[in-house]
């Protein structure tokens, strides 16, 4: 249930109003690598929203993003399918996605030195109110 802690960070961010206009739709992006449990996360989000009447109108959409890796040693690009992991390793990556560096190797050159270029973990995406964050 550590999804709850992540959901709290989402609510706190929306509540702060920083870079997010009140009432504008928010997209929560799940990186494939972190493998967040959507059901638990949504449940936590709903429960937390109930405690925040001012966020009642906020629409939150959850999207997932495929993980992509790029090897720093040989330049090969690969995805999660290329990385076979035990359930225990997957669980460790679920807690800290960077643990992928311990358990996943470049399929081409076996290096552990790769970048997670996409689909790492949790992030938020807001559209249409970029003007609020620009400093002039």
């Amino acid at each position: 249930m550590h999804e709850w802690a992540l959901a709290e960070s989402v609510i706190k961010t929306i509540k702060s109003g920083k870079n997010i206009k009140k009432g504008s739709p928010v997209e929560v992006l799940f990186g494939e690598l972190q493998d967040i449990d959507r059901e638990i996360f949504s449940f936590a989000l709903d429960e937390l929203l109930k405690q925040e009447p001012e966020l009642k109108k906020t629409r939150i959409k959850i999207e997932t993003e495929k993980a992509e890796f790029e090897c720093v040693s040989c330049g090969a690009k690969f995805d999660l399918k290329a990385a076979v992991n035990t359930p225990e390793e997957k669980e460790n990556i679920h807690f800290i996605p960077e643990m992928a560096k311990a358990f996943i190797k470049c399929p081409k050159c076996r290096s552990h030195d790769f970048e997670i270029t996409k689909g790492r973990g949790l992030s938020l995406r807001v559209t249409g109110n970029g003007e609020k964050c620009r400093k002039h």
């Binding site: 802690a5 992540l6 720093v72 996605p97 960077e98 643990m99 560096k101 311990a102 030195d113």
Partner: peptide, 27 residues
């Protein structure tokens, strides 16, 4: 972080170190 990396080496570049720290501080 050793709970999660077990006995494996954990080769982390700077940005990954930041990310992992933020993750653990968050949860």
């Amino acid at each position: 972080a050793a709970y999660f990396s077990g006995d494996r080496a954990l080769p982390l570049r700077g940005s990954s170190v930041s990310n992992a720290i933020k993750e653990l501080l968050t949860v």
